[in-house]
Amino acid sequence: MNTDGIFRRLRGVVGNAVVWGAAWSACALVVFAGLKVAGQLPASTIWLDSILIAARFGFAGSIVGGVFSLVVGLLYHGRRLSDISAVRFGIGGGLLAGLFVPTFLTAARLLSGDGFLTLEGILLNGSLSALFGGVAAGASLKLAQHADPLLGGGTSGMLGSGDRLASAVGEDRARRQPVR
């Protein structure tokens, strides 16, 4: 793999991490506001706490988004964006996030000497992460599918394809046109 391909993939991982971090932060704000308005949070909880919670979720979302981007690069290498189902992609993102976050938190707790994460903590973190991961994955794919025609389709419609000639051949095969 050439240097341009490595930097392009790295840029994709970082870009996906930023998008997921923003999406998870926004989801956390919505959930916090809903719980606060419904009276499900202690009275001592103030609205400024939502900023701290959103920042924590944004950080976790960016880590999961980077990992998800690496997994997508392996599983969907060379496939066109238009051929990928947003629902299946969202389910995959939800599963990955729902499994990764409790595992990551448990490993971090064990390394710091705090012991295992409680079952309640695993279920809560896993379910929220699965929900946020599914939303972020599906939304990021739909965003990419929408942006692909605006950016000219071309090689940007191919996932993980760093070689322009290979991308053009793959694009022609996808359209069932002979290569000229």
Rank of each mutant, 00 (worst) to 15 (best):
L141T: 11
S156A: 06
G153F: 02
I122D: 03
G113F: 03
A107T: 09
V101T: 14
V101W: 06
L150V: 11
K142I: 06
S82L: 10
L143H: 00
M158P: 00
D114S: 06
V135S: 13
V101G: 03
V101P: 04
G157Y: 02
S156V: 07
G115S: 13
L110M: 11
P102D: 06
G113Y: 06
L99I: 07
L99Q: 00
A108W: 13
K142L: 15
S129N: 08
L124Q: 12
G113I: 04
A86M: 01
G157P: 05
G93K: 05
T155D: 10
F104K: 04
F116Y: 12
R88K: 14
A137G: 10
G93E: 06
G98I: 08
L123R: 12
S140F: 05
G126S: 13
E120D: 14
A144V: 07
A108T: 12
K142G: 02
A97R: 07
S112A: 05
L123H: 07
G94M: 09
G153A: 05
G157K: 02
G154R: 14
I122K: 05
S85N: 10
S85K: 05
L131W: 02
A107P: 00
A130M: 12
S129K: 05
R109P: 00
F132T: 03
L105A: 11
L123W: 07
